[in-house]
Simulated assay, not measured.
Amino acid sequence: MSQWVSGKITEVNWWTPTLFSIKVAADVAPFQAGQFTKLAMTVGEKRVARAYSYVNAPKDPVLEFYLTEVEGGKLTSGLVELSVGDSIEVEAKANGFLTIEESPKREVLWMIASGTGIGPFLSILADGKVWDKYQQVVLIHSVRFNTDLTYQDFINAHQKLFKQFTYLPLVTREMPEKGLRGRITDLIQSNEIAKYFNQERLPEDSHFMICGNPDMVKDSAQLLQTLGYSRHRRSEPGHISVEQYW
């Protein structure tokens, strides 16, 4: 049975009219970077809970979650009203296997995200274990508009600190200010992503971590399998790890 703890909102940051992050002070159990927990609150007369990835590193004392306002969303209708000092319930124990600890050691790590699915990868980058395990680390973030490319100060700082880290933004609905235009699957299929890194194809010695829109996760994983990469399992190390908690 789930154990819940009471948390207090310490900060609310609106990145765009629909994208926002909250910081929460709560006494949760230790977790691994890349894992998720659940947030819950009473909306109207019903208690509603949904899963969200930690954005903060496990060592950080304040928890952070990256959210999008969903039209008609049962929980986000309450989350958007939160202010500093308000209470929210947090599931004490984290879940999920989209972690460095569960990933096989390979030359290149590709962290592929759409929308708020970048959250667990920000936690992984902040945690720091990734730098000792992989020679190259690539973060690919797909969004609709340039303004949806959030956490830029954090990402830019890590690019300066870690020479093995590369960030590639993808924008689907307008010309990108940087990066490439198009859907992740189309750019993998056309080899545009490999060409962006001056390669003929994606390296064989790669591991792919994928998080975001369920259709993107499914389609990307299936496409990578047609290219010869396999799903990763503890009993059978492969190349593809995914997170789906929608």
Rank of each mutant, 00 (worst) to 15 (best):
residue 152 Q to H: 03
residue 153 D to C: 01
residue 153 D to H: 09
residue 153 D to E: 13
residue 154 F to G: 00
residue 154 F to V: 06
residue 154 F to S: 02
residue 155 I to A: 09
residue 155 I to M: 06
residue 155 I to P: 03
residue 156 N to S: 14
residue 156 N to F: 13
residue 156 N to H: 14
residue 157 A to N: 03
residue 157 A to C: 07
residue 157 A to G: 08
residue 159 Q to S: 04
residue 159 Q to A: 05
residue 159 Q to G: 11
residue 159 Q to P: 10
residue 160 K to V: 09
residue 160 K to E: 14
residue 161 L to S: 15
residue 161 L to N: 14
residue 161 L to G: 12
residue 161 L to R: 14
residue 161 L to D: 15
residue 161 L to C: 09
residue 162 F to A: 09
residue 162 F to P: 11
residue 162 F to D: 12
residue 163 K to G: 12
residue 163 K to A: 15
residue 164 Q to F: 03
residue 164 Q to H: 10
residue 164 Q to S: 13
residue 165 F to R: 13
residue 165 F to Y: 12
residue 165 F to W: 09
residue 165 F to E: 08
residue 166 T to P: 01
residue 166 T to N: 10
residue 166 T to R: 08
residue 166 T to G: 05
residue 167 Y to G: 07
residue 167 Y to P: 04
residue 168 L to M: 02
residue 168 L to G: 03
residue 168 L to A: 04
residue 169 P to H: 01
residue 169 P to E: 07
residue 170 L to P: 06
residue 170 L to Q: 05
residue 171 V to P: 03
residue 173 R to T: 06
residue 173 R to F: 12
residue 173 R to W: 11
residue 174 E to S: 06
residue 174 E to L: 00
residue 175 M to W: 05
residue 175 M to A: 14
residue 176 P to H: 08
residue 176 P to W: 02
residue 176 P to D: 02
residue 177 E to I: 07
residue 177 E to C: 01
residue 178 K to F: 02
residue 178 K to S: 04
residue 178 K to P: 01
residue 179 G to Q: 06
residue 180 L to S: 00
residue 180 L to W: 02
residue 180 L to C: 02
residue 181 R to F: 03
residue 181 R to V: 07
residue 182 G to S: 01
residue 182 G to Y: 04
residue 183 R to N: 03
residue 184 I to F: 05
residue 184 I to V: 15
residue 184 I to M: 14
residue 185 T to G: 04
residue 185 T to S: 08
residue 186 D to V: 00
residue 186 D to Q: 11
residue 188 I to D: 06
residue 189 Q to S: 15
residue 189 Q to P: 12
residue 189 Q to G: 11
residue 190 S to C: 01
residue 190 S to A: 08
residue 191 N to G: 06
residue 191 N to Q: 12
residue 191 N to S: 10
residue 192 E to G: 10
residue 192 E to D: 15
residue 193 I to E: 06
residue 193 I to Q: 07
residue 193 I to W: 01
residue 193 I to S: 07
residue 193 I to M: 07
residue 194 A to Q: 09
residue 194 A to M: 05
residue 195 K to H: 15
residue 195 K to M: 13
residue 195 K to T: 14
residue 196 Y to T: 02
residue 196 Y to I: 07
residue 196 Y to G: 02
residue 197 F to Q: 02
residue 197 F to A: 01
residue 197 F to H: 10
residue 197 F to P: 05
residue 197 F to D: 09
residue 198 N to A: 15
residue 198 N to P: 13
residue 198 N to C: 14
residue 198 N to W: 13
residue 199 Q to T: 03
residue 199 Q to C: 04
residue 200 E to G: 06
residue 200 E to L: 10
residue 200 E to N: 12
residue 200 E to Y: 08
residue 201 R to Q: 15
residue 201 R to G: 00
residue 202 L to S: 13
residue 202 L to K: 13
residue 202 L to D: 13
residue 203 P to K: 15
residue 204 E to T: 14
residue 204 E to P: 04
residue 204 E to G: 13
residue 205 D to Y: 04
residue 205 D to M: 00
